[in-house]
Write a protein that binds this DNA or RNA. Sequence first.
DNA 1: CCCCTTGTTGAACGCACGATCAACTAGCGC
DNA 2: GCGCTAGTTGATCGTGCGTTCAACAAGGGG
Lengths: 187, 187
Amino acid sequence: MSPELREKAIREAAIALAHESGIAQLTVRTIAARAGVAPALVAHYRPSMDAFVAEVFGAIVAAERDEVMAAARMAEGLRPRIASIVGTLLDDGRDDVTLVWVQAWAAGARNEELAARVRHEMDAWQHALDAIVAEGVRAGEITAERADGAAWLLLAMVDGMNAHSLVKWAPEDRAGLARRALAAVLG
Amino acid sequence: MSPELREKAIREAAIALAHESGIAQLTVRTIAARAGVAPALVAHYRPSMDAFVAEVFGAIVAAERDEVMAAARMAEGLRPRIASIVGTLLDDGRDDVTLVWVQAWAAGARNEELAARVRHEMDAWQHALDAIVAEGVRAGEITAERADGAAWLLLAMVDGMNAHSLVKWAPEDRAGLARRALAAVLG
DNA sequence: CCCCTTGTTGAACGCACGATCAACTAGCGC
DNA sequence: GCGCTAGTTGATCGTGCGTTCAACAAGGGG
């Protein structure tokens, strides 16, 4: 197999594995088994596992963000878009990506390379949300001062809720609660 | 040394270690080294490491909760109390307990014994906060319907913010942002 | 047709993990 | 002072980790 294809296969095996079991399960051996390849070949294409883990994390959360933001932009107006984002992020069955995020925060406390990648992806989230809010301000749907901090609140609330859901601790209708809280802040 | 004292020493060594490096660093060997004891002795007093980790997690977060709630009850009135809780929980220098929480959520996704303990401690948080809110409702400081979900919102927001802080991703004055969000919800 | 490049492998190293168990030792009761 | 109980230890097992490297195999260029 050509190096490009083999690299792609290994990368996709790692991404699939991280979706199933989290980035903590990413080891040379598990990735190799998943790709149907000898462990040494994984190490050959990715000499540093730490860097590979950071790469897989980035790929997964970037794909998630693109998907969520694309769905949000199908809606018209600030509040429907925010409702869409909250609804999608809090949808059940997203535990796979949540586990990746929570493991990344935990591991990032002691792994600066991964932490830098996490900050980068969180900045991208913040900017994407700020862009949505800024459009609402321009359209006169909300005042700039009320909008300040809304993106950050959304991220903190959703991330906290999802972290809780990893141990199956959640109120009924958490999406409704989150929407009510955001509505109160946005006015 | 008597079994009771030895057990206490090992337990406290584990708790100190978890404060410094998180519960992921709790191994038979690291705890033994910290307690100045042979690894086998740790295994002797705590035959299952999974159970020991859950126990240490519970001890750490229960102590934190008692401390935070005691400080809150020094204040008078619903809003000052909530401001106290938010301020304490979002104070810098709490990364040690935050790391314990985030690692527990991550590990709890694949370790049901720990997950059960996490749920138990989160229930205790929820009940403690609900009690504060209920006092505010009784005192007429707030209507019952407005108060509904406030405890949960506070937990989700604070936990999300603290998770973010593990990779040093935080806005300036996050406590102020959190207080504003809660004020908007409480009316 | 042979060789040589290149993708790939198996084996090994050193380390760390939880768990187990026979052997040691200190101190108390007799 | 002797012996037994009970706390403690060192050694070891099996497993899994990242990393390294000599050796294998396949396929195209000369």
